[in-house]
């Protein structure tokens, strides 16, 4: 048991160090660009850009953090919040891996499997993007081929169709209420679309947890 605590504690310690280091590097980048080109940012553009962008993304970012951290596990969180693309890549990858290994996110086995899946996914993504940057000239016409465009536009429906059928068929009782709620909301509220789905994830998660708690207390699960 003692070792268990020390592994998780060390994940948190190392995750913080790496996170801080990468955060510093990312903030140093614009400073370095300023120094190299001997130029300052355009103050008006910077303030306007921040004013229009930051409040919304900070709010969403905060909510995302509380939604995704419990699902990703500690190691998975420290990696995912650096490499991004959580809902469309890292989390489905981790969820699928944990499901196949038959482990839960709340256990140490789940923590390890999720970390391995997310680390591998981050590495593969980074390498593919590096290769793409190197071979951008021959690749651009191929990837921007209009025939392929619909396939890349439809990644999210394809991903959640496959993931959904597994989870919904395994837990039909628990899935019914949130699926019905989300279908009604997305079909009848015009403001809900691709750009607002991120905000609806925490709504779905909290709603499902409340429903699950009630069903659990009543012995329905």
């Amino acid at each position: 048991m003692k070792k268990n605590i020390s592994y998780l504690d060390s994940v948190h310690r190392d995750g913080r160090i790496w996170g801080l280091l990468i955060c510093l590097l990312l903030f140093a980048f614009p400073v370095a660009v300023s120094v190299v080109f001997k130029a300052a940012p355009d103050a008006r553009a910077l303030l306007r850009g921040l004013f229009d962008t930051a409040p919304m993304y900070w709010a969403v970012g905060f909510i995302e953090m509380f939604t995704y951290v419990p699902m990703l596990g500690a190691g998975g969180t420290y990696l995912s919040f650096v490499t991004g693309n959580i809902s469309n890549l890292k989390l489905p990858c981790a969820v699928d891996a944990m499901e196949r290994a038959n482990v839960k996110a709340t256990s140490e086995e789940g923590e390890i499997i999720s970390t391995i899946a997310i680390a591998v996914s981050s590495i593969v993504t980074t390498i593919i993007v590096i290769l793409g940057v190197i071979f951008i000239i021959p690749l651009t016409p191929l990837l921007e081929n209009p025939v392929l465009a619909p396939a890349f536009d439809m990644i999210l429906p394809a991903l959640f169709g496959a993931l959904g059928v597994v989870f919904i068929s395994k837990h039909p009782k628990l899935a019914a209420a949130p699926i019905i709620l989300m279908l009604i909301l997305f079909i009848f509220v015009p403001a809900l679309n691709e750009s607002t789905v991120g905000i609806m994830v925490p709504v779905g998660v909290i709603f499902t947890i409340i429903v699950a708690r009630i069903m659990y207390k009543k012995g329905m699960l």
Binding site: F160, M200, G204, V205
Partner: peptide, 20 residues
């Protein structure tokens, strides 16, 4: 159950989005 509920909550949001 809690961890299943979290995943189902996320999946349901994306399933809803597909029908938007």
């Amino acid at each position: 159950i809690f961890s299943n509920a979290m995943f189902l909550g996320m999946i349901s949001a994306f399933v809803g989005y597909v029908f938007c």
